[in-house]
Amino acid sequence: MLLFFTFRIKINFYNFVTLIYLEMNYIKKHTIDELADLAISIRKDVVRALKVAGSGHLGGSLGLADVFTVLYFNRMRHNPDNPAWPDRDRLILSIGHVAPVFYTALAHAGYFPIDELQTLRKLGSRLQGHPGRDHHLPGIELSAGSLGQGLSVAVGMALAAKMDNADWKVYTIHGDGELQEGSIWEAAMSAAHHKLDSLIALVDSNKVQIDGRVSDVMEIEPLAEKWRSFGWAVFECDGNSIGGLVETYQKAEKISGKPSVIIAHTLMGKGVKSIEGDYRWHGRAPNAKESEDFIREIEG
């Protein structure tokens, strides 16, 4: 931490004081045990928020709870008290429909009160059905919902960081079905062309999409080979293993000269045994009874 301070000392005293304040407030790296507990709280709050909303995407949100927990409480350098901090690591959520878990992670990190999750999808809420920059929720870089756009934006951000010799990273989250969008591959090509090693993408490989199994709808395999042939460093891990995710991100962050992608194998609905892997829960919200059962299942 001390080294970090020294590294960031600027001549201007005011800046220096501000920076110390910022550094002291940025989110600490949580331990694996702490992360596991957090993931449970986040899953429960996702279920609660969706129950109140009455609609929304439960399956993918639960499947990605571990990824969001690891990013916001272990990997990313960010400061909820100063969402516009120029040196922050950025997250681009390309699959806006998992907004519930995104919002829940942001709230737990301290970007806004956890109570506000109860306003999800309500008129006037900052918590839109899909993330909207227009609604001034802190912590959101980009509006997202229409698929296949986030990776291009991440490429632009990584280019900007490179131009400024800045050391912040860009993390993205994609769906496996989303990779059927051609624009993803335009972006993949350009990220490798520009050797953007500050860009770390993650594919939520839960093998299902709205109309069924990804392999039935439109096969995307061999996925690792595809990314590799586009010039990316490819990692695979269990996307519902906190330890596995931390370790894999650590490896990806060390890659230089090319972008990295983590193919994270997840289970849609993870944490709620009775719905795990069931694609019918892609776009459903639980009713009051289901929500009680689900929370009990999450608590184990």
Binding site: R90, E141, L151, S152, A154, V155, G156, M157, L159
Partner: peptide, 11 residues
């Protein structure tokens, strides 16, 4: 998309 990203990066 890249243009939007560059704008996020202050360009």
């Amino acid at each position: 998309g890249i243009a939007a990203g560059l704008a996020i990066g202050g360009k």
